[in-house]
């Protein structure tokens, strides 16, 4: 799944995993700078999504005052 198809929740999960990687056993200094840049990009992407997204509120046309 490309980054633009991910939901905010997925991006937040990715970011948390990236941060966890720094504290995990797989940590290596060689990859750390790349991972840090990925974390920064994820944070920027989440912020951009949050700012841009609007809610879509629809009032259902069906009436509930009688049995359907």
């Amino acid at each position: 799944m490309s980054d633009k198809d991910k939901t905010i929740q997925q991006k937040m999960t990715d970011l948390q995993e990236l941060v966890s990687w720094f504290q995990g056993e797989d940590f290596s200094l060689e990859q750390a700078v790349t991972k840090f840049r990925e974390a920064e990009t994820a944070a920027e992407s989440i912020e951009a999504d949050l700012t841009a997204l609007k809610n879509d509120i629809t009032i259902i046309k069906r009436r509930f005052d009688k049995e359907a």
Binding site: T7, I8, D49, L50, A52, L53, K54, N55, D56, I57, T58, I59, I60, R62, F64, D65
Partner: peptide, 13 residues
């Protein structure tokens, strides 16, 4: 507070 929600509203008394 938030964006990107798909909200369906049922109007009732």
């Amino acid at each position: 507070r938030w964006g990107g929600l798909d909200v369906q509203v049922a109007h009732t008394q």
